[in-house]
């Protein structure tokens, strides 16, 4: 296909964006429009599919083909789009309620099939559009309108969930980390098979303080673990802390900046077990891992599907009458 030189602006539908002031969704929208422009595909080759929730308004703000479907079902709709027109770039925009709760079954099976969808899950740990109920990622103890005494549900960690399901591409980023998260989107866009990107963001009216510690310049470097393929798992403002594994248990090792000891693990994004161990690192004991946690190549569902069709030989030119007759027809004279 001829490369079209489109800019992020070309990917804006021009409609007034109706998220709350300060919402992280704006930054994600900008990043994704830029990513799409960078991919060199024309507008009509994109389909942006969403479910229901604040994040799911996304397709209206992008000038490509888009489908704002129903609660939880974006992945099912998108699977139909991708499987019938595999040449399209299909992005799915979902949230922690839409994707992890009502749409949980579709997320499991989309990942299982490794169908070529780029999933961006906006995780603000709350039902925002319905004005503040606990979601499947709401932390225990959080007080919301439906958990006035504090949530008792154990929460899902979407990234760990996806890695646990052997998703072929899993990444986590922050809405305000433009450089870092944009890079994740670009990698996701180029991935074959299911790509899952969790973006941590706050909801201004309901979870305003969520993830603050990951974003505060004073604390963030001690709270974030930026994983990078082939690099040691080092963090801290002074890059003087690392993660090592002893008997498969993570430990924090402190060292003098610049001299990373051999016991600090070197990250391997193709190692599913390592990805699972690292995805389990959680506050308050450990920093939160961000970056590409998992990236492996496995044939995508649509590749397997159309390879099978190719193998049996495409007989689409077969006369309709012969097709309908099958092997058992008889002639009445």
């Amino acid at each position: 296909m001829e490369k079209t030189k489109l800019t992020a602006k070309d990917f804006s539908s021009g409609l007034p964006v109706k998220w709350c002031p300060g919402c992280g969704d704006f930054a994600i929208l900008n990043m994704l429009q830029k990513t799409m422009a960078n991919m060199g595909l024309p507008l009509e080759q994109y389909a942006v599919i969403s479910g229901i929730g604040c994040s799911s308004r996304f397709p209206y703000y992008v000038s490509t083909y888009g489908f704002h479907s129903i609660h939880g079902r974006a992945l099912a709709v998108a699977s139909g789009v991708k499987l019938s027109k595999p040449e399209l770039a299909v992005w799915v925009i979902t949230g922690d309620g839409d994707g992890m709760s009502i749409g949980g079954n579709h997320l499991i099976h989309t990942i299982r099939r490794n169908i070529g969808l780029k999933i961006v899950l906006f995780n603000n740990r709350i039902y925002g559009l319905t004005k503040g109920q606990a979601s499947p990622t709401t932390l225990q103890g959080s007080k919301t309108k439906t958990t006035p005494l504090g949530a008792i549900d154990y929460p899902f960690d979407p990234t760990r969930f996806a890695i646990g399901l052997d998703c072929t591409f899993v990444a986590r980023g922050l809405d305000n980390d433009i450089a870092g998260t944009s890079a994740l989107f670009e990698r996701a866009a180029k991935h074959t098979g299911t790509a899952f990107v969790e973006v941590l963001q706050k909801c201004v009216p309901f979870t305003d303080k969520e993830f603050d510690s990951l974003k505060d310049p004073a604390t963030k470097e001690d709270m974030l673990l930026r994983v990078e393929h082939g690099k040691p798992l080092v963090f801290g403002k002074d890059k003087n802390k690392g993660i090592s594994f002893r008997n498969m248990r993570a430990e924090i090792v402190e060292f003098k900046a610049g001299s990373v000891p051999a016991e600090v693990a070197v990250y391997d994004e193709t190692n599913a077990d390592m990805a699972y161990l690292v995805s389990g690192l959680a506050h308050p004991e450990f920093p939160t891992p961000i970056g590409v946690l998992k990236a492996v190549r496995k044939p995508a569902y649509e590749e397997l599907y159309y390879d099978q069709v190719k193998a049996i030989g495409n007989t689409k030119e077969q006369e309709l009458e012969a097709l309908l007759a099958g092997p058992d027809a008889w002639e009445m004279k």
Binding site: Y65, S69, L83, S84
Partner: peptide
């Protein structure tokens, strides 16, 4: 497409209709 449930079955078909 053998979907994971009845809902995914119709939604995938709606996706295909959207895809023309």
């Amino acid at each position: 497409f053998q979907a994971e449930d009845e809902i995914a079955a119709i939604c995938s078909s709606i996706g295909a209709a959207f895809a023309g």
